[in-house]
Each structure stands twice: as structure tokens, then as C-alpha cells.
Computed example of a mutant assay.
Amino acid sequence: MKLYYAPGACSLADHIALIESKLPFTTDKVDLKARTTAEGEDYTAVNPKGYVPALGLDAGGVLTENVAILGYIADRVGNLMPQGPLGRFRALEALAYISTELHKSFAPFFKPGSSDEAKSAAKTQLGKRFGLFEDALASQEFALGDQFGVADCYLFVMLFWAREKVGLDLPPNLSSYYERLSQRAAIQQALAEEGLGD
């Protein structure tokens, strides 16, 4: 498999999940402005959407979108989804929430020309939307219980953006969770490989 990524973009979630999975994979860094990869490919030929992530599959073809890629990785290894009859669906539920309610709320911070008012409103909205996980983490170690999974990979990236790019103060449970995850070997490795480590 080959992960197409941009440093610090949401593709970081897939990078973390792939390292955690111990599945063999390579990476190719994408220049999102030039739409080319470090290996010289026209990225729009890989992913016509033009953004990351994309996962080149060993059997051929490409998978895009975090929810799909993270689900695919978790299904391949079986230990990155919560257990139980609803485990997979709880993970998909959390991934969809992270993608649509958290990820999209960062848009004003990455869109050139966004007003200070739009950024302030986005910070308020993010604070409310992070509240779901703040409450859950009062009684559990990870996003969906006592096992690290793909939802944690994606949630970590949202918290990384909140802390490191936006300067959002995290409430106590999320702050402690972020610090714990920051010490996880797979996360440290992914950050280092993307040039984001200390």
C-alpha cells in the first residue's frame, strides 16, 4: 500500500493508523499547490479530488477519504475497532462525527481571507463539538473505550490542529488525552516522518 499525504494534514490520521497496524506500506508526499508528488506523479491522476489522503491499494486502485481509509485499515488488522456487535458501527459513527463536525469546523483557519470573526465563531463551535469527547474521556482512556483505535488516530489530528495550529485551549480530559497520545510510539513516528516532531 502507498499512502499519499501532506505533512500535518488530515492524512496524518491514516499515517498513524498504518504504523499502528504494522501492515507494510510506503508513503509519497504530496505538494497540494502543485498537485504533484515527491515521486513525480501528477496527483490529480491518483486522486482527481486533489486533496489528501489517498491510499494506493496493493491489488490496484485507490481509496480516498479518511472514514473509508481508516475503516479499511482497521478491517485489515482487526484490533483498531472497538469490540462487540456494534463496535465497528460505533467507530464509523465517531469517524463520521470527527470528519463532518470537527474537521470541517477548521475551514476558516485554513481558508485564505477568512475574517477574525469567522475564526472566532469557529473556535466557539469547535469548543462545543469537542465537548462530546471531553465528556466521554471522563470515564474512559480512549475515544471509544479502553482500546486505542482508528477514531483516536483521527481525533488526535483534530487536537493537534486545535493546539498547535489554532491555539485552542483544550478542556482537561482532552488535554490529558492529547498528552498521553503524544507519547504513543506510532504517533511520535508519524509526526517525525512528516517532519512535525520535536
Rank of each mutant, 00 (worst) to 15 (best):
P172F: 12
I73W: 00
G195H: 06
A107E: 08
N47W: 04
L170K: 08
L23H: 08
E39G: 15
L102F: 11
T100H: 13
V52N: 04
Q83M: 10
I16Y: 11
S105P: 11
Q125A: 15
D146R: 08
L102T: 04
G40W: 11
S115N: 02
L144F: 05
S139T: 15
S11L: 07
L196N: 00
F160M: 06
Q125C: 15
L86N: 00
A9P: 03
Y178E: 07
I187M: 12
P112I: 03
E41Q: 12
Y43C: 03
A151C: 13
L170A: 05
Y177P: 07
L144E: 09
D14I: 05
D58Y: 04
L70R: 03
Q140L: 05
P24W: 04
L32A: 02
L92D: 04
L144A: 06
G197D: 13
F130E: 07
D75I: 00
S21L: 07
T64A: 10
K29T: 07
R88C: 01
D152T: 12
I98R: 10
Y97L: 03
A192F: 06
E41N: 12
G127V: 02
H103C: 12
L32G: 03
E117R: 04
F156G: 11
G50R: 01
D58Q: 13
D31Y: 09
P7E: 09
E39Q: 15
Y178M: 02
Y97A: 05
I16H: 10
D198H: 12
D42R: 13
E101P: 09
L181I: 15
E193T: 03
K104Y: 10
L102C: 05
F160Y: 15
A13K: 08
G8K: 07
Q125M: 14
L55P: 05
L196Y: 00
E93V: 05
K119I: 09
L32H: 00
A138W: 04
E194C: 06
L102D: 05
L57Q: 05
V166P: 04
I98L: 15
L18N: 01
T124E: 15
P108T: 10
K22S: 10
D75W: 00
V166Y: 08
T26F: 03
